[in-house]
Simulated scan of single mutants.
Amino acid sequence: MGNFPLEGRCQCGGVTYRLLQEPDFIVACHCRECQKLSTSAFSITAMVPAGAVEFSGELAHWERSSDSGNINAAKFCPTCGNRIYHYNPADPGRIKLKPSTLDDTSIIQPTTHIWVSEKQDWFEIPEGVTVHEKQM
């Protein structure tokens, strides 16, 4: 994939980070909440160990319950509102990095698509990826 570490930042540059290693995997989520988040057909998440990312700058917090009953918490820039990562407080060792905030986005190659039961009709899932109707 890329040459690590990779640098990332929010839109205004108030939050920066370094991704120290390759993500465990990258997923595209087509649920309605992710469509709202991305203002597009899906959002992209890179699953990484929490220790694989070094953050700088102030991060604001927001959370909601998911369909499974887990908490889906989000960290974002309080100035520009750009989401940086999500996480489940019950599993603080793993974060769901929003990799479109990386300076080099060439690592964004989702191998799994989830919540395709809520996918936009106009979007076609690429061949050769794993597909889940709901959560994996």
Rank of each mutant, 00 (worst) to 15 (best):
A73D: 02
I26T: 09
F42Y: 15
F55E: 00
S43C: 09
A90F: 02
S106Q: 03
P89N: 03
G14L: 02
C77I: 01
P99E: 00
A74I: 09
V27A: 12
C34V: 00
A52N: 05
L20W: 03
K134G: 15
I107Y: 01
L6S: 05
P110R: 06
S40N: 13
H113N: 10
L19T: 09
E63N: 11
A60N: 08
K36I: 09
K36W: 02
R18C: 02
V129S: 11
V116T: 15
N72V: 13
E22W: 06
T101H: 01
A90V: 01
G69H: 03
M136Q: 11
G81M: 04
E54M: 10
C10L: 02
G14T: 00
T112K: 09
A52D: 13
E7L: 05
A28S: 15
D121V: 08
E63K: 14
R18S: 14
Y17E: 11
Q120P: 03
S56M: 10
K75W: 03
V48T: 13
W115S: 08
L102R: 04
D67Y: 07
Y87M: 06
Q135L: 15
D67A: 15
L19I: 04
K96A: 08
G51N: 12
N3T: 11
Y87E: 08
L19Q: 10
P78V: 01
C31K: 12
G14V: 00
T112N: 11
W62S: 12
K96T: 01
K96E: 08
R83I: 06
R94S: 09
W122N: 13
K134E: 14
R83A: 09
E127F: 00
I71T: 15
G128I: 10
S106K: 03
P110L: 04
H61I: 02
Q109I: 03
P89A: 05
D24C: 03
V48P: 07
V27W: 00
H113R: 09
K98D: 04
H113L: 07
I44E: 06
W62F: 15
F42G: 05
R9N: 13
F25T: 11
N72L: 14
E63L: 05
V53C: 10
